[in-house]
Design a binder for these strands. Structure first.
Lengths: 143, 143
DNA sequence: CTAGGTGCAAAGGGTTTGCTACAAC
DNA sequence: GTTGTAGCAAACCCTTTGCACCTAG
C-alpha cells in the first residue's frame, strides 16, 4: 500500500467523503515543492479545475490538518501546509533575507525538547517549529 | 536616569514627536503584565483617553518596534508587544491548553543557536522565539 | 509657522460562514 | 434517498491607508 493509498484509507475510515475537490487539494499539497500556502494550493489546483473555490481549499486543509494528513506551518504571517509524512517529519529554518526555507531534522531539536521538559515540565510541541534568521548564503553575500 | 527617561531620550534623539498618545501607548505597554496585543493596549489606554484610535496604536507600536523600544512577539495568530528591556531579554513558552505564557532565558536556547550555526551556517534570530506545547500544570491536570 | 501626527472612515488582505443546489455514499 | 459538501457571496477580523484637521517643536 503506497502512502497515497494509506492516506485515502485513513480518510475513508474517518467517514470523510472523497470528493474530486478534496483529492485535488490533497494531490496538490503532495506535489508541491515543500510547503504551500492556501493561496499556492488554490492557484495550482485551479489549473486542473478552475471552479475550485478558496473556501473549499480552506475547509479541506483544516479537515486534513484535523486528521493529521497534513501539518500546518506558521511562516511569516501566513499558514503553510505540507504532507504529514510521519516517517520524515522535519522542521524549518526561514531566511529573513532571501525568504529561503531549509529543513531541520527532528534530532536537531531533541535536546531542546528534553531540556524544556526536564527544567519546566513543559511538553513542547515542535511539530510546527520554525526558526528565522539569516542563511549561510546570505551571510556569505552580505555579512 | 530611569529606564523610562532613557527611552524618552532615545525617542527625542530619533526626532520623534512625543505626543500624549504615544506616551500613553508606551506607558500602557510598560505597565502591561507581560506582552500585550494591539487590542489589549488599545482597550487599556482608552480608559485614560477614550478618543485614542486603534490606528494610532498600530502606528505607534510599529514606530516603537522600528526604534527597538518594544519587541514584537508572534503568539498564536496575533502580534504582541512588550518593552525591549535589553538587560532581560527572554523568550516564551505558550501553553496550547490554558493559553498561559512562560518565560525562557536566552541561555536555554544558546546550545540550539550554536548548533544551527555550526551545522548549517544559519544565524538564527531567536529574539522572537516562542515554543508552543503543554505546560506542567496542564500536563498534571489532564495528562 | 510647519512638519508631522491624530482621528475618522474606508479599503485591504486573508479567512470564515450562511445558504442552496448538488454529488458521494 | 440522505447527508454532507461545493460554490458563491457576504461577513469577519485584523491591519493599513487617505485625508482634513490639529498640535509638538
Amino acid at each position: 500500500m503506497t502512502h497515497h493509498e494509506s492516506v485515502l484509507a485513513e480518510l475513508k475510515a474517518a467517514g470523510v467523503r472523497l470528493t474530486p475537490q478534496r483529492l485535488l487539494v490533497l494531490q496538490t499539497i503532495a506535489e508541491a515543492p515543500g510547503h504551500a500556502s492556501v493561496e499556492d494550493i488554490h492557484r495550482r489546483a485551479k489549473q486542473a479545475y478552475p471552479y475550485l473555490d478558496v473556501a473549499t481549499v480552506y475547509r479541506t486543509v483544516q479537515l486534513l490538518k484535523r486528521l493529521n494528513v497534513v501539518t500546518e506551518i506558521d511562516i511569516g504571517h501566513r499558514l503553510h501546509y505540507e504532507m504529514a509524512a510521519e516517517g520524515a517529519r522535519h522542521h524549518h529554518m526561514v531566511c529573513d533575507e532571501c525568504g529561503g526555507t531549509y529543513d531541520l531534522a527532528p534530532r536537531q531539536l531533541e535536546s531542546l525538547r528534553q531540556r524544556l521538559e526536564h527544567e519546566f515540565g513543559f511538553r513542547a510541541n515542535l511539530d510546527h517549529f520554525t526558526v528565522t534568521g539569516v542563511c549561510a548564503a546570505c551571510v556569505a553575500r552580505a555579512g
